[in-house]
Each structure stands twice: as C-alpha cells, then as structure tokens.
C-alpha cells in the first residue's frame, strides 16, 4: 500500500481574478493525524472544499489514494470521509436512518457488523432510533464522525471540528480521533484555528498563510525526522567553564555558558551521549532541561506574526 494518502500538487484557486490558494502542495501520510493550520482567511476551508469536490480547482491536481478528485471523482471520494464545518445531518430522520442514507451513498457494501462497530465506537447505541433533532451537539458530532467512517475511508477530513463544542465535547472528540487513528489506521486532516487543540491531537502540522504553503512541523516524538531535528538543551552543572572545556574537540558544538548553565543544540540521540560525556569527565549535572519551542512560537515565526485566535 502506498504511504501517501493525499497529495496536493500546485493547487491554485482563483475567484473573480482574486487568488485564494496559490500553488499549494503538501502530502498526507497514512495513519497520521495532520493539523491544518493558518490564520483566519488563509484558505484552509477553501482547500478542504477543493479536496472533497465541493469547489472547482482552477489549476493543479489533488490525488486521493492516487485518484484525481476531478477526473476520477467516484474512486477518489470512495476513500474519503469528511465533515465540512458542522456535522450536517437530516434532523427529521433517526440516527439509524441517517447512517443508512450515507451507507447507500458510499457506493460500497457496508456490513451490518461494521455499522454496529462504528455505532459502538461513537457510543450512540442508546440514541440510534431517536430523531437527530433531539440529539445534543456532541451526539451530532459523534454521528457525524460515524457517517464519515462507515465505508472505511483512508482519510478523514474534518473542517473546524471543535467549532461550537464545549471543553468536555472537545476533549471527547480529541480522544475519539486519537483512538481512530490508532484502531482504524486512517489518516486524519483537521483544520482548526485553536492552536492548543492541534498541539494536543496531531502528529504533524501543515501551516498555510495567504493561500500559500508556509511549512510543516512534526509534533510527535516517535518520528525519525523529529529525532533528527535539533533542539536546545540546557545542562545545569557545578562548573560551567570546566564543562565547556571538556567539550572542546567534540562534535557537540557550539556551547554557550552562563551562570554554570551550558546551552547546546542537540538531536534527541545526542542528549544521553553528552550526559555520558560529562559524567566521564567528572562534571556534576544537577539538571538537564529541554527548552521546547511551543507550537505557538513556531507558528508565529512561520507566519511572521500572522495572528490567530
């Protein structure tokens, strides 16, 4: 199976001469949760609408499991589950009827046991035969997720899924999504303007601004890319100067020292090596601290101060 589930290639969207999305390219890998981040008006919703075929693409291509969303719409969409903005459901029908409706639209045979599993996963067994108009917002959100998952998509696209949810609802949704990525091995693309949400939920963040790709950030430490990435580490030692001298001639450079605090830029694997090095040189270590940049810092530096709510 191909490792890339979704690929955008130089996607551009123009409406009446105004460029909303400009040559946007990025990829979504299998089984990972992607945060799709950008200041308001950056083009997140427009991009998502092009991915699911609600909006036409001015130029460029979007591939889902290798199928062009414009040329091979049916094949591409068969792999997509999505909630665009609110979970829009038929309020005058029961949860069960809604699921039946979307099962029929999926174009795949969905077994009854699959439906039962999904209903259990989103904990809607009790409410399934009630009309959706009597559901709470959280229940609608869960039914929305259920309908998006019925046909075992390889990518779940969620546009601002935490909109209108209370903190408990947001937390619940977050737990579901994490479980899903683990249990169903599907990729999830979540657009949001809530940085803290994205930080807690996602493995990776794609940032766009003014319709352009700005950068990508890995948040999960399980990735080799993240392990190779460098970070700032502070060592609180007894004798700062001695410690720096001991490092001379090694690859752990450059070192800064201030008040017996030695600051180094290291990869993940280098941290224990440096500790071992100090210990061998009989330098007492009182504290090792990673000065992590928060997602907010990263986001602000990427978008050069582009504000976010």
């Amino acid at each position: 199976m191909n490792d890339i589930v979704v690929e955008l290639r130089n996607v551009t969207k123009k409406i009446r001469g105004k460029t909303l999305i400009d040559q946007l390219s990025f990829q979504v890998k299998r089984g990972e949760i992607y945060g799709f981040l950008g200041p308001n008006g950056a083009g997140k919703t427009t991009t998502i609408r092009m991915m699911v075929g609600l909006m036409s693409i001015t130029s460029g291509t979007i591939l889902i499991e290798g199928h062009d969303v414009v040329k091979n719409r049916a094949e591409a969409m068969a792999h997509v589950g999505a909630i665009v903005e609110n979970p829009e459901l038929y309020k005058f029908m029961t949860g069960r009827q809604n699921l039946q409706h979307f099962t029929r639209m999926s174009g795949k045979a969905v077994s009854q046991s699959r439906i039962d599993d999904i209903v259990k996963l989103v904990e809607l067994e009790q409410a399934l035969d009630k009309k959706v108009k009597n559901y709470s917002l959280g229940m609608r959100q869960r039914l929305g997720i259920a309908q998006a998952l019925l046909h075992q998509p390889s990518i779940l696209i969620l546009d601002e899924p935490t909109n209108g949810l209370d903190p408990a609802g947001i937390r619940e949704l977050r737990d579901y999504l994490k479980r899903l990525a683990r249990e169903e091995n599907i990729s999830i693309l979540v657009s949001s303007h809530l940085l803290s949400e994205i930080e807690l939920m996602c493995d990776r963040v794609v940032v766009i601004q003014h319709g352009k790709y700005v950068g990508e950030q890995i948040l999960d430490t399980k990735h080799t890319e993240e392990q190779q990435a460098t970070r700032t580490i502070q060592f609180h030692v007894e004798q700062g100067e001695t410690a720096v001298q001991s490092l001379e001639g090694t690859s752990y450079q450059p070192a800064q020292v201030e008040n017996n605090v030695v600051t180094l830029t290291l990869t993940r694997d280098q941290i224990p090596e440096v500790v071992e090095h100090f210990v061998r040189h009989h330098i007492k270590i009182y504290e090792v601290r990673s000065i992590a940049e928060t997602l907010e810092d990263k986001f602000l530096s990427m978008t050069k101060g582009g504000h976010i709510q």
Binding site: V52, L54, M77, A82, E88, L89, F102, M105, G107
Partner: peptide, 14 residues
C-alpha cells in the same frame, strides 16, 4: 437550507 448539500456532494455520486 440545512447545509446537507455538502454531505450529498462529497460522495462518489456525481
């Protein structure tokens, strides 16, 4: 009116 048009049009059906 209900916004369900989005749900209809993100499926394999043309």
């Amino acid at each position: 009116k209900d916004g369900t048009i989005k749900q209809l049009l993100i499926r394999p059906a043309s």
